[in-house]
Amino acid sequence: MISIKNLYKSYGNIQALKDISVEIHEGELFGFIGPDGAGKTTLFRILTSLLIPDSGSARVIDLDVVNDYKKLRTQLGYMPGRFSLYQDLTVEENLNFFAGIFKTTLQENYELIKPIYHQIEPFKKRRAGDLSGGMKQKLALSCALIHKPKVLFLDEPTTGVDAVSRKEFWEMLQSLKKQGITIVVSTPYMDEAALCDRIALIQKGELLDIDKPQNIIDRYSHFLYGIKADRMYDLVNQLREHPQCLSAYLFGEYIHFASISEIDINQLKEDIVNSGIEQVEIIQLKANIEDSFMDLMAKAEK
């Protein structure tokens, strides 16, 4: 469905993409996961024919993104990072406009966008600028879907959107996937990785890993402990002094402490308590995608 081979792209002396190669299958929900500045937007712009790569090639729906861009543009749906809507047009006017430029009508593909659109339909006379973040996101998705594209590119659709809207948005993507649309999505939120069929972790223009989320997590090779106590900041600094410490980071309620070898939990607890930190609790942990990302990131730095 999508085949990316040895893609390079730079702006001046900033290398935005370095040797990116990915195969994405038909009907897949594929996620590019990485922080701002990782090169996600550049990659999406190349895949949607908006940018030309310095070298390497990319084919989408078996069409070359450089040479066959005209044909490709009729078949892909794209939702850029900032919800690209006309703020001064109403919900309905936005939809009709985008339907028009794709030479279709709202009625023609109503079935496809209905599950999303019906949530904002009560507000169809409202201007897009007056919608909440979550509703804007739904409208932008409806607009990107209006011509029934074979593949949908969503560049950071959940950035700056609250947890509830994010959850709803992913539910919508799952249902679109069931209709056979290939979906490529990018996000800086690591926790969204689990919702994709396969993911590529990307950092500073390079791919760290590509696989099913679970496989990436399973490859995590260190011993991981969750530790909490009353003085977290002092604790994290203290843990970094530990001879076995690979990394120690705040992780929500717990500090994730990665060690080179297995550690005697009771001994560690005693050491911490002896240093005057109280209410210490230590558990053994399984890594999550963020642990893996941070580990891969640290390895890549070296």
Partner: peptide, 13 residues
């Protein structure tokens, strides 16, 4: 500026 041009460019228009 608003990014709508990106969407227009990607469309067949």
């Amino acid at each position: 500026e608003l990014g709508t041009m990106e969407v227009l460019l990607v469309s067949p228009i």
